[in-house]
Amino acid sequence: MGKKLAVSSSNGIDEEFARELFAPYGEVISLSLATTDGGREIAIVEMESSEGAEQAMADLDGNNINGSFIQVTEAKRVG
C-alpha cells in the first residue's frame, strides 16, 4: 500500500520539481498541489511503496536542494 507525503520548499514547489525529487525513490502514484491556510504551497505526493516514501522522507527532509530548503512529512488527513 502506498503512502502520502506533504512536501514544501522555501522557494515554492511545482509538479515537475516534486516529481524530480521523488523519482529516485520509486513510482509516484499521484501528485497534487495545494496552498495551506497560511499561504504556503505544498505538494501531496503518493508513493507506490511505503518503503520508498520512508526513505525519501529520511533523505530529503531538512535538506537544501538547489538553494531551496525542503520539508517532507507524512501527509495528514484533514477533516
Score class of each variant (00 low, 15 high):
73 T>R: 12
35 T>N: 00
37 D>N: 11
10 S>M: 07
61 D>G: 06
70 I>D: 10
53 A>Y: 06
35 T>K: 07
75 A>Y: 09
11 N>V: 02
22 F>C: 01
74 E>D: 04
71 Q>M: 06
45 V>I: 06
12 G>E: 12
69 F>P: 02
45 V>W: 02
64 N>A: 14
11 N>D: 03
72 V>P: 00
12 G>T: 07
20 E>V: 06
23 A>E: 12
47 M>G: 10
77 R>W: 09
33 L>T: 01
52 G>Y: 14
28 V>Y: 02
61 D>N: 15
9 S>N: 09
61 D>C: 06
72 V>R: 01
17 F>K: 09
30 S>T: 00
15 E>V: 02
56 A>W: 08
42 I>P: 14
79 G>K: 07
59 D>M: 10
50 S>W: 08
37 D>F: 04
46 E>C: 05
66 N>S: 08
42 I>W: 03
68 S>F: 06
10 S>V: 15
54 E>D: 15
18 A>D: 04
4 K>D: 08
42 I>L: 11
46 E>V: 06
79 G>L: 09
51 E>P: 05
69 F>D: 14
44 I>R: 00
25 Y>S: 02
24 P>A: 08
39 G>P: 09
67 G>K: 05
76 K>W: 10
9 S>E: 04
49 S>W: 12
9 S>L: 02
54 E>K: 14
13 I>D: 09
24 P>G: 04
2 G>I: 00
17 F>L: 04
33 L>I: 02
13 I>C: 10
77 R>K: 12
58 A>R: 13
63 N>Y: 06
71 Q>W: 01
48 E>D: 11
54 E>C: 08
77 R>N: 09
15 E>S: 12
31 L>S: 01
45 V>N: 04
42 I>E: 12
62 G>D: 14
49 S>E: 13
27 E>T: 06
73 T>C: 06
